[in-house]
């Protein structure tokens, strides 16, 4: 059953490999910890969600694993406007 979801998650994951950071929608979070569990470099994403803070950890690989795994759609990927801003400058 959750296999179907996993495949869908894989798609999201690939799309997420861009420059940016992970932003939580705290009201949706129940602190289950699936995000932190799947973080390959052990960032405590769950704590960020509790505090309502974006994951602006310089170690974050922006792999999107936490975004894809969260069963409640708490996390999303905010793309930094780095290139836009430069281009427009």
């Amino acid at each position: 059953m959750s296999l179907k979801n996993l495949f869908r998650h894989e798609n999201t994951r690939r799309q997420a490999l861009v420059k940016g950071y992970v932003v939580p929608e705290t009201a949706r979070c129940v602190q289950c910890g699936i995000c932190s569990y799947h973080c390959p470099i052990e960032i405590d994403v769950r704590l960020h969600a509790w505090l309502g803070q974006s994951v602006k950890d310089r170690h974050c690989l922006t792999c999107g694993e936490c975004v894809a795994r969260c069963p409640r759609g708490v996390l999303s990927f905010e793309v930094t406007r780095f290139f836009d801003e430069r281009g427009n400058a």
Partner: peptide, 18 residues
Amino acid sequence: PGLAYYLTKELPESSLFP
């Protein structure tokens, strides 16, 4: 709420403590 994911084996018990 995380207990449900522990039951389905999606999470180990050690991950339930925020």
